[in-house]
Amino acid sequence: MISINNKLALTALATFMLSACGGSSSSSKMMPVEEPDPMITYSYQVTVTNLTYAQPMSPIAVLLHNEGQLWTIGEMASVPLENLAESGDNADVLAESIVLSGQSGAGLLLPGMSEVVDISYTFTDVNNAPMMISLATMLVNTNDAFTGVNALAINNLAIGESISLATSSYDSGTEKNSELMATIPGPAGGGSGEGFNAERDDIDKVAMHSGVVSVDDGLMMSALTQAHRFDNPTLSIMVTRME
C-alpha cells in the first residue's frame, strides 16, 4: 500500500514538473547521455557423465570464479563442502563468496547418464573475464565422498574450444567411512540415512577416497553391496566455451 501511494505521489510530482518546466523536453536532449559500458558475456557448456556403476551423483554444483579453490588436499574441508560431501546439498557451495556465477544440475545424475549444465557470467570490465571453473558433486551412496574439478583454468579457452578430463574421487575427511545404513543419504541407506552432521569424526583433512568396502567385501555392517564399489575416475567432464 505504501509503495503504491509513493508511486502515485511520484507520478503526480513528475506531471507537475513537466508542466511547470514547459519546454524542458528540448533542453533535456542536449544533456550529455552517459553510454553504458557494453555488457560482455562468457558462457560455457559443461557436459558431465557419471562413470560409476551404482553411485548416483548429487545435483552438480558448477561455478565460475577468479580466485580460491573448493578444496585443498591436506586441509580441512570448508563447511559448505562438508555439507555437499555428506548430504549432497550444493546450496552453500554455490553461495560461497568466491562464486561469480553458480549453477546447479537439474537433479541426481544417475550412473551411466550424462547431463549438460549451462553457465554464464556477464560483466562490463574486460579484465573481469572468469578465470576458473570448479565443479563438485557427492557420490550419494557413501559417507562423505565427492568428486569434481578444482579451479580449472579456463582463461585461455577460446569460443568453441573444449577441455575434457576425468575426475578422481575425494574424501572430505569429515565423516568416518562406516558405511552404516543410518549414515548413507543415498538410496542404499534406505532413504533415511543421515546427511550433514557438523561433527567431524574422521581425519578432518581432504584426501583421495579409498573406495567403499561393502558388505560383499568384508565389512559386515555395511549397507553397501558390491554394486556400490567404484574406482577412479568417476566422472567424465567436458567444458566448452560457447560465447
Binding site: I73, S168, S169, K176, N177, S178, E179, M208, H209, S210, G211, V213, D217, G218, L219, D231, N232
Partner: peptide, 13 residues
Amino acid sequence: DNTVHRWLNPVAR
C-alpha cells in the same frame, strides 16, 4: 582395517 587402510590410485602428487 578395511575402512582405513585401503586406497585407490593415484596415491601421490
